[in-house]
Design a protein around this nucleic acid. Structure first.
Lengths: 168, 168
DNA sequence: GTATTTAGTTAGTTTTGCTAACTACTATGG
DNA sequence: CCATAGTAGTTAGCAAAACTAACTAAATAC
């Protein structure tokens, strides 16, 4: 299947790599989504909640930026989380326009459990891999986050991540 | 835990890696989605079309399996692609239940251009990376595809990918 | 003290995904 | 040869997630 051209360093056509990464990201998320119903916390919700829980209270706009979505989308996500009793809106006393989103007690518990479920499938799959492959994916996760944040029309500002800057 | 037999690689807790991969996949896709409108081919459509174009005609069911979605979802996607004049349904002469999905002329052109456009942002970002990081991501793409297909209730059948089996 | 900018929400649409139930066809077992 | 069981896809109906456009309310600027 894989045309194993066994050379030292195939130049790795970047657009081909980009294309494959794109497909891979789509497929892994679709696979993971199948675990959702069991826990009632979808990917986008879990991701947003994770930011709130680990980063502390954050404004809706900033949360939208971090999560790479538009404000209206985040309004919906936050509302859903609010209905689930996982976050509360805390109005800013100094600036009455802004709303800070804070995690409730339950959020910590639910997130821990939810993550265990959803990411559990992936974790289990990772067990089938060797140390080196896991290390490769660890580094890849870091690179992908960097890629997601670069190319955002700050071409000059973005600095390629140092290979030493992350333990993966 | 299991101390890496190699040098100073940290053990890389698998559930942590899984969590970070999960977030990274979400964020990279959201970033990529912003490029969609420029080419009129969304992620799922581009992904499916890519399979058809490069793999040749394929039944709807098989395509759904490859793309990790249910048949009704693929029916929708195929219909959209059909309306865009990118694929045609070819009934199987031997088994009148099955429908093969084939790419049209335009599909090749659109996909080539679309890839340049859509994945262009990612490709460009990749240019900011060194050979080694690109190689890491190339290998990661392969591993992610494997992960997406594993843990699918064929626990015995899945075979961890050989490190040599892919030129990345 | 109006005018502009900023933060968030509301309204409405589209895409993507699901399950359940259906149609149409194939294959099998008397 | 026909009844029955299984398979491939579609239809119907639903929900989540995303967008843009247009709005409200509040802060800042001139």
């Amino acid at each position: 299947m894989a045309p194993s051209s066994r050379s030292r360093k195939p130049p790795a056509d970047r657009s081909l790599v980009a294309d494959r990464l794109h497909s891979a990201a789509i497929h892994i998320l679709r696979r993971l989504r199948r675990e959702d119903p069991a826990m009632g916390l979808s990917g986008p919700r879990a991701s947003a909640l994770s930011v709130i829980v680990f980063g502390g209270p954050i404004t809706l706009g900033d949360l939208a930026a971090v999560e790479q979505v538009r404000p209206p989308t985040m309004t919906h996500l936050v509302r859903a989380l609010e209905h689930m009793g996982l976050v509360t809106r805390v109005p800013d006393p100094h600036d009455h326009r802004v709303v800070r989103i804070a995690a409730t007690h339950r959020a910590h518990a639910v997130l821990a459990e939810g993550r265990a479920r959803r990411v559990g499938a992936l974790t289990q799959a990772l067990d089938g891999l060797g140390e080196r492959d896991v290390a490769t994916l660890s580094r890849a996760a870091y690179l992908l986050e960097w890629l997601a944040r670069s190319t955002t029309s700050h071409p000059g500002q973005a600095v390629p991540p140092s290979r030493r800057s992350f333990p993966g």
